[in-house]
Design a protein around this nucleic acid. Structure first.
Lengths: 136, 136
DNA sequence: TAATACCCTATCGATTTGATAGAGTATGCA
DNA sequence: TGCATACTCTATCAAATCGATAGGGTATTA
């Protein structure tokens, strides 16, 4: 299941991308437009800023804004920042690899075999979608 | 993330499929061979039996066995039984559909759009894999 | 009839999730 | 300068979920 964090993060990014200019937008505006708890959204936007997808401006007239153009923001990056690993098990993860404790041999593991295919299929989707594609 | 329940369930099914005959196999044997907590596995096998994938025999010489041939057991069915919805959000689920509370319009929702593609890519994988494919 | 092995319910600690509260700090403008 | 604005950060919390375990019940077979 997709976490609310990821869902809200995607919606917030889409909202920013849908605006014509790249002026700072207040948290309150995004929260209201997208039906998101403002405080929760606050922490999500902070994550996105720290990871380099968003910029922020403090004080009056401040807010959050996209640093890159929507067409240059890949879903692979967004998903890894918000949701974490794209793989369903650590032993097939490219960026978060971990060996299974219980599994003696990955090469013959049926779960490994299946999850490798699932990961690749998901990666293909995320690599072919930018933020711009989502708001068309 | 894939739950341990699904992971163990897949391993147990693969173990049964890898055996030559279809005689009942005791929980203890599967648990030992696949490094799974026996009690936990017990509840998983019970789920698989209730859903029709496994049969069981009580008493001495009893155990669990596959009802269908491995090549006739689709991963779509296995995953739905063990893990639940294949979709990452209920609003794109075929078998567990639910409307999002916060989302005013699915047709224009960016999350919906992306998750629809992810679901389809996962479904394609699960539909093209049977239990027999996993143990090759 | 006794041993075996599945059946079922209950419980429990740990973790995660989604949300909230509140104080701190930088900025812009009058 | 001083104040209002709006992001920043930490702490907390209830609820849900997960993985695991315990223990007794019941059907079957040798």
């Amino acid at each position: 299941m997709l976490s609310k964090k990821t869902k809200y993060g995607l919606k917030a990014l889409s909202y920013l991308a849908s605006l014509e200019d790249r002026q700072p937008v207040q948290i309150a505006e995004i929260a209201k437009q997208e039906n998101i708890s403002q405080k929760f959204l606050e922490s999500i936007l902070l994550t996105l800023r720290k990871s380099g997808l968003l910029g922020s401006k403090k004080g009056k007239g401040g807010g959050y804004y996209l640093i890159k153009e929507p067409k240059d923001i890949l879903m692979t990056d967004v998903m890894r920042i918000l949701e974490g690993p794209i793989a369903l098990v650590p032993c097939v993860s490219l960026n978060f690899y971990e060996k299974c404790e219980d599994c003696p041999d990955e090469a013959t593991c049926s779960v490994h075999k299946l999850m490798l295919q699932v990961r690749d299929s998901a990666l293909t989707v995320y690599r072919h979608n930018t933020l711009a594609d989502l708001i068309e």
